[in-house]
Design a binder for these strands. Structure first.
Length: 336
DNA sequence: GCGACAG
DNA sequence: ATCTTGTCGC
């Protein structure tokens, strides 16, 4: 088995990746392109997609990629596609897309072939958009390759362009009052790269929302907020839940025969905080739906293992598409 | 050597 | 990302 994912890319590869990001970044559209994005109630929006990749514990190549589509505004899952994959690139901060995006593009392509009528009108991506080292995170990358509006939703602040998880930053978080409250993430360059969003009244940690593609930051934040039943927006949360469950059901038994399955108490464990912010509990009744998908066998077990070979667009991102330029979002909440 | 490090 | 148990709260 090609366990390429463990190998660190050479400097040459990283250079190529950077050039690829720069090339695709030129095609990025960071404003609203769809009518529903401008509507206060998102009228016209019916399907919101979410993607995520979950990993197998002791394995650095096996993972499960999921794409879900939820109805809007009901937020009910109307489509799910989960599939085992073999990762070929390692995780490197700033290059997440080269690890996950090829599989997510595959999932979108499969949906297009199987149920084109369920194609989402926007995708929420687990990770950043323009809030990125070179302004081109995984949400931008996926947006460009699929031509779909995308929103980056990260759970931790990526410290770039002067942004840091400093005491001052934590203080701003502390000042967020109710769900929907936000504050801008302004890089030292003066550009607003994204917004920290308190997605739920009782969530302590904010979400870091940024533009992926074909949507304005204002609409991205507003929609993310509208998709939150819990801290993490439903589309991403469902993709996460289902990808993990797929792994558990697929190889949960013959799983990782890794050593050290001994239970031991190592390291400090936080005692229960009397006033902790537990905003992610989900009693959530999951239906024992038939996830009878194909076997775990991967069609192309013959991974050529060449990173450079991935990332090809499956649709030629041609020019065109412009709506209007007079964007006048009627200042929503505090912060802008 | 030290700190950072989306997922 | 993943492991890990209980606990507090609606």
């Amino acid at each position: 088995m090609a366990q390429k994912a463990a190998v660190q890319p050479s400097e040459e590869t990283l250079s190529l990746w950077k050039r690829e990001q720069a090339r695709l970044k030129a095609l990025l559209v960071d404003r609203d392109t769809e009518a529903w994005q401008r509507d206060p109630a998102f009228s016209g929006l019916r399907r919101v997609g979410g993607v995520d990749v979950s990993f197998v514990k002791g394995d650095c190549v096996s993972a499960c990629a999921s794409l879900v589509v939820l109805s809007y505004p009901e937020l009910e899952v109307v489509y799910e596609e989960s599939r085992m994959i073999s990762l070929t690139a390692p995780y490197i901060s700033g290059f997440l897309a080269f690890r996950e995006v090829p599989f997510l593009v595959d999932a979108v392509r499969q949906l297009q072939e199987k149920e084109p009528s369920l194609m989402p009108q926007v995708l929420l991506v687990d990770g950043n958009g323009v809030l990125h080292h070179r302004g081109f995170g995984v949400a931008c990358h996926l947006g460009i390759l699929t031509e779909l509006p995308c929103i980056g939703v990260a759970k931790k602040l990526l410290q770039v362009d002067g942004l840091e998880n400093s005491a001052a930053h934590k203080e701003k978080i502390r000042l967020l009052r109710a769900g929907g409250d936000v504050f801008p993430l302004t890089g030292s360059s003066g550009t607003v790269l994204g917004m920290a969003l308190k997605s739920h009244d009782h969530s302590t940690k904010p979400l870091y929302v940024s533009v992926g593609h074909k949507i304005s930051l204002e609409a991205a934040v507003r929609l993310t907020r509208c998709c939150c039943r819990f801290r993490v927006p439903e589309p991403v949360r469902q993709a996460d839940i289902r990808s993990r469950e797929y792994i558990r059901r697929t190889l949960g038994h013959s799983g990782p025969p890794v050593p050290g399955q001994e239970r031991s108490q190592k390291g400090p464990r936080p005692k229960a905080h009397p006033k902790g912010g537990s905003a992610g509990l989900a009693g959530e009744g999951r239906h024992p739906e038939d996830l009878s998908r194909g076997p775990g066998a991967d069609p192309e077990a013959t991974q050529l293992g060449c990173w450079e070979q991935q990332g090809r667009a499956w649709q030629s991102p041609g020019p065109g598409h412009h709506e209007d330029s007079n964007c006048r979002p009627s200042t929503p909440a505090s912060g802008w």
